[in-house]
Simulated assay, not measured.
Amino acid sequence: MHPVPRPWRAPWLAGLARRALAFAVALGALTPLCAFAAEVGDTVSLPSVTLLDGRTLPAGYFRGKTVIVEYWASWCPFCAQQNPHLQKLYETTRGKPLEIVAISIDKTPKEASDYLRDRHYTFPAGMDTADWQRTLGKRKALPELYVIGRNGRILRKEVGEMFPEDVAALAEYAGK
């Protein structure tokens, strides 16, 4: 028996290697599109946010502060149940070392602004942006809430509606 000549094997192996490499490159290219989501223990640096009232909170505004970030939408029934409790938390923690910012995923700022105005919500709210998505990832459900400590570490993450007493208990994070 004669061994199979190398030139015959090489193209097949080379073709397989090229396909494997192309697959690996394609997979790597898709990684940023995959559903990244920040988790408890991760450290983040929050980006600036333009609030629906026109004010801008620069990225540095959040440094050294405990921040509660809630993602919501005007069409979300679970957000409609949770947001009154977030408003109450906002009112009871004013002046304490705790910041609240709500990030809407509505299609337009008008939808979000109208929702807040009609319900008399005064907590700071802005729109989701590419910077916020790079920082905390894409939403898996609504509402989605993060508690971020003064050092930028995510202390808590809640996906889905919280009970009123659980929202109220978030006041304990003031200063953490």
Score class of each variant (00 low, 15 high):
121 Y>S: 01
121 Y>Q: 04
121 Y>A: 01
121 Y>V: 02
122 T>I: 03
123 F>R: 02
123 F>Y: 09
123 F>C: 01
123 F>A: 00
123 F>L: 03
124 P>R: 04
124 P>F: 02
125 A>V: 10
125 A>D: 07
125 A>N: 13
126 G>A: 03
126 G>N: 03
126 G>P: 05
126 G>W: 05
126 G>C: 03
126 G>H: 04
127 M>S: 02
127 M>G: 00
127 M>P: 02
127 M>D: 01
127 M>T: 04
128 D>R: 03
128 D>H: 03
128 D>N: 11
129 T>I: 09
129 T>G: 07
130 A>L: 13
130 A>F: 11
130 A>G: 08
130 A>K: 13
130 A>Q: 13
131 D>Y: 12
131 D>E: 15
131 D>W: 11
131 D>K: 15
132 W>I: 08
132 W>R: 07
132 W>N: 09
132 W>T: 10
132 W>Y: 08
132 W>A: 09
133 Q>A: 14
133 Q>C: 10
133 Q>M: 14
133 Q>T: 15
133 Q>I: 15
134 R>M: 13
134 R>F: 12
134 R>E: 14
135 T>N: 12
135 T>Y: 11
136 L>K: 05
136 L>M: 06
137 G>C: 10
137 G>M: 09
137 G>N: 10
137 G>H: 11
137 G>V: 11
137 G>K: 10
137 G>F: 09
138 K>M: 11
138 K>Q: 13
138 K>I: 10
139 R>G: 13
139 R>D: 14
139 R>V: 14
139 R>S: 14
139 R>Y: 03
140 K>E: 12
140 K>N: 09
140 K>V: 12
140 K>H: 05
141 A>L: 02
141 A>F: 05
141 A>S: 11
142 L>R: 01
142 L>T: 04
142 L>K: 00
144 E>H: 13
144 E>M: 14
144 E>W: 09
145 L>S: 14
145 L>H: 05
145 L>A: 12
145 L>F: 05
146 Y>C: 07
146 Y>F: 15
146 Y>M: 06
147 V>Q: 06
147 V>H: 06
147 V>T: 08
147 V>N: 05
148 I>S: 11
148 I>V: 14
148 I>Q: 11
149 G>M: 03
149 G>Y: 00
150 R>H: 07
150 R>I: 06
150 R>L: 07
150 R>P: 08
151 N>Q: 06
151 N>L: 00
151 N>V: 01
151 N>A: 05
152 G>V: 08
152 G>T: 07
152 G>W: 08
153 R>W: 01
153 R>L: 02
153 R>I: 06
153 R>V: 14
154 I>D: 00
154 I>W: 03
154 I>E: 03
154 I>A: 03
155 L>E: 02
155 L>R: 01
155 L>M: 00
156 R>D: 09
156 R>A: 13
156 R>P: 00
157 K>I: 04
157 K>W: 00
157 K>L: 12
157 K>V: 12
157 K>N: 05
157 K>M: 06
157 K>A: 08
158 E>D: 13
158 E>C: 09
158 E>I: 08
158 E>F: 04
158 E>W: 04
158 E>M: 09
159 V>N: 05
159 V>Q: 11
159 V>I: 15
160 G>E: 05
160 G>Y: 05
160 G>T: 08
161 E>F: 06
161 E>H: 10
161 E>A: 14
162 M>L: 15
163 F>N: 12
163 F>E: 15
163 F>H: 14
163 F>P: 09
163 F>Q: 15
163 F>S: 13
163 F>R: 15
164 P>Y: 09
164 P>E: 09
